[in-house]
Design a protein around this nucleic acid. Structure first.
Lengths: 181, 181
DNA sequence: CAGAGCATGTAAGAGGTTACATGATTAC
DNA sequence: GTAATCATGTAACCTCTTACATGCTCTG
């Protein structure tokens, strides 16, 4: 059900087509929710049927026409109700940790190599987020309420990636003691 | 596919029944991978068919019989191959952040209340993990290789929860400035 | 003229959730 | 006697991923 609300949340700030949404799910909204274009188009049809959003076809020259979706009053109301409703704690799934859990089956250097790879992937993500922070949210206390909300989403991403990199380093250095075997 | 490997990883350390596995997915393995008993039983059948695991029925008095699963040589080999194969970065989905992203639709106090709830849930989780760390992994450098691997999984959980609590506090204190509206 | 970007979809299958179903024993 | 624990499953449904499918324009 959360995908529906992630779409509504995005449409709340401005109307968008399925294609636009797919792009946002690769960047901004993508910090905390991912969805492929296939999922998005399917969900948009469902939401339109329920009349939480409405579509307007925009004719374009030199480009395919697009259907631009807008949040309806009903949709906005449903979004507000959902925000106010206490939510469950999100448990995350980490493939690397599954590997590590049975990591004693392979020589430590294999694990270290994989952890090093992940360290670099997360480091790259961290740099990207930090760049965005500097560019769009230079002075947090001066932001208006809507911007603060989105700034705090980005802050989560930054903290998470920073911490992940730290954990990789801790893990690598502990495993290095067993490198002889 | 990862659920299969999460089960194999668990069976690698000791044979277990579906019921035993379900319990572990609520505790230790549950730090980084969650699964319901329905999923587990379905997956166990698939893995038995592929001969990655094998079952032995254990007759019990006063209790229902159980099927205890063991990793086969093939299963162990598949697990080792999977560990060595470079994996993708796991992106996490955070419902609270979807709420925050459209959080300007509701008064700040609603958001603060929800963030406070999550702060407490994660704090409780953190205390639980810290307790486990003290109990089972008091002196990390002295641990053997297999224990180190499992210790590092727990460390991730601890870091994650600690950081999450920190983010909640940061978010709450920033939003408190808008509390008048 | 090749490749990237715009724009929208279908179909199959894997993964995951919720509800239903049974039945014995043990602890309070 | 009520609830929790042990033990295993089926069925329906929803969500998510991967692959396939089309066709136009703009940039290099």
């Amino acid at each position: 059900m959360s995908l529906a609300y992630a779409i509504l949340a995005t449409l709340a700030s401005e109307p968008a087509s399925g294609y636009d949404l797919a792009k946002k799910f690769d960047t901004s909204v993508g910090f905390f929710w991912q969805a492929s274009h296939q999922q998005i188009y399917r969900e948009l049809n469902k939401l339109e049927e329920k009349e939480w959003i409405e579509a307007e076809t925009v004719f374009q020259e030199g480009r395919p026409n697009k259907k631009v979706y807008t949040l309806t009053t009903l949709g906005k109301q449903k979004m507000i109700e959902w925000i106010a409703k206490p939510g469950k704690i999100s448990r995350h799934k980490e493939e690397v940790l599954v590997k590590l859990f049975a990591g004693y089956l392979v020589p430590p250097r294999i694990l270290i190599r994989e952890l090093e790879r992940h360290r670099q992937l997360h480091l790259r993500q961290l740099e990207k987020y930090k760049g965005m922070q500097q560019k769009y949210f230079a002075n947090p206390p001066s932001l208006d309420f809507p911007s603060k909300c989105q700034y705090l989403s980005l802050r989560q991403g930054i903290r998470y990636e920073h911490d992940y990199v730290g954990w990789c380093e801790e893990a690598i250095s502990l495993l290095q003691e067993d490198l002889s075997s």
